[in-house]
């Protein structure tokens, strides 16, 4: 299980686009010792080649990149004040969708976290859960909701 820390929860955040979001998250992850400097570029490249936007209710993206750029596991949760365009996973090149919630998966050892990853992905398919995050009044509420959901 990967522990969610308040520093990596961004509630009703405002970003012009996904690059601005990635930049901010990368800065904070680097400062917290979670990733190597190479992570930011690797994340952007991975998202460009293999987009992670999912057409679940509300639109959720799960950006992540190769484990070799990760030092320490983390889960970053972002709820957005205004939706951001992401490429759609598995769709034709150039097709995008509006995303209101972003889960950045920072995992050093994917095989050790099969359960965590599958629970996270099952969670984002749950409309009530995503709506609950969007309406949360504090980062602590988001932390509690995600922690409970992933432990369930």
């Amino acid at each position: 299980m990967i522990t969610l820390v308040p520093d990596l929860i961004y509630r009703r955040a405002r970003f012009a686009d996904r690059n601005e979001l990635f930049h901010r998250v990368a800065e904070d992850l680097l400062a917290g010792g979670y990733v190597k400097e190479s992570w930011a570029d690797a994340l952007s490249a991975r998202e460009a080649a293999y987009p992670t936007g999912l057409p679940v209710p509300g639109g959720v993206a799960i950006p992540h990149t190769d484990a070799s750029h990760v030092l320490k596991d983390a889960l970053v949760v972002v709820t957005l004040d205004k939706p951001i365009e992401f490429g759609e996973m598995g769709a034709a090149a150039g097709s995008t969708l509006s995303v209101e919630t972003v889960f950045v998966l920072v995992v050093a050892d994917p095989s050790g976290h099969v359960k965590f990853l599958s629970k996270t992905i099952r969670a984002i398919q749950d409309r009530a859960f995503i709506e609950n995050l969007a309406s949360a009044e504090t980062a602590e509420d988001i932390q509690a909701a995600v922690t409970a959901k992933l432990a369930a």
Binding site: T65, D66, A67, P110, V114, L117, T120, I121
Partner: peptide
């Protein structure tokens, strides 16, 4: 793309 998240879930 990275053999991290989505293929882990799909394989499972």
């Amino acid at each position: 793309g990275g053999a991290v998240a989505t293929s882990t879930l799909a394989a499972e």
